[in-house]
Amino acid sequence: MKSLIFAGLLAFSASVFASPAPLVSTANQAAYWQNLSALCGKAFEGEIVKETEDDGFGVGQKLVMHVRYCSDTEIQIPFHIGEDASRTWIITNTGAGLMLKHDHRNKDGSYHVSTMYGGHTVDSGWPQLQSFPADAYSKELFVKQGIPASVDNTWQMMIYPQTFSYRLIRPAREFQVDFDLTKPVEPPEAPWGYGEQ
């Protein structure tokens, strides 16, 4: 009898561990991931539609996002600012939600001192919008760099039929770039160090 019970437990355990874990924790995040993946291989031009700090970032520059690499667990989106291809948004399917990281490089391809900041979702969001509050690594990085106001950063990415939006918000700061999804453009030359399609 004991051997039968033991055999049953072994069979049950094998079936449990053989089953793949879900890639995302909610239906909204799964739908969002599908919406973002549908853009893979395409590039779109954008414009700054909100900027509450007059720091000149991106002003007068051609802004292009290129959904360059997609897998079941990672989507890489280089964000070109004129000739500057140093920034890439990396969205990862963690199994407990979605994570956004900002991969920032120097001209030689080495990591910039300010890189891999971002955050992880803390709620289910919507199929069209996910929010990424700054994580512990990012907060520590911002304090070390003397920009403590950034510890309150939340990044948002929105996908609607005609527009993809990248938004940064925190108290007294908002920045948003809208990209026109109705007019794909020629993808820019791929930056270094990223996945291949």
Rank of each mutant, 00 (worst) to 15 (best):
Y166I: 08
E174C: 12
Q128M: 04
S114L: 11
L168K: 01
N153F: 12
Y160L: 14
T92C: 07
F79V: 06
L129T: 12
D180S: 14
Y137G: 08
I91N: 10
L141Q: 05
I77L: 06
H102I: 13
D72N: 13
T163W: 01
G146H: 08
I77T: 09
I159N: 00
A134H: 01
A96M: 13
D180H: 13
F179G: 06
D135G: 13
L141R: 04
P148M: 05
M116I: 11
P127N: 10
R170F: 11
R173Y: 06
R170G: 07
M99N: 10
G109W: 15
H120P: 00
F179N: 02
E74W: 14
E140M: 15
E174V: 14
Q76K: 09
D180K: 12
V143I: 10
Q162N: 11
A149Q: 08
I81N: 01
A172M: 05
V143E: 00
N153Q: 11
G97H: 15
H102L: 08
K107S: 07
S71G: 07
G95R: 01
S114C: 13
Y117K: 03
A149H: 09
F142W: 11
Y137T: 06
I90S: 13
C70R: 12
M157H: 07
S165M: 00
S71A: 09
A96K: 11
S150C: 03
L141N: 05
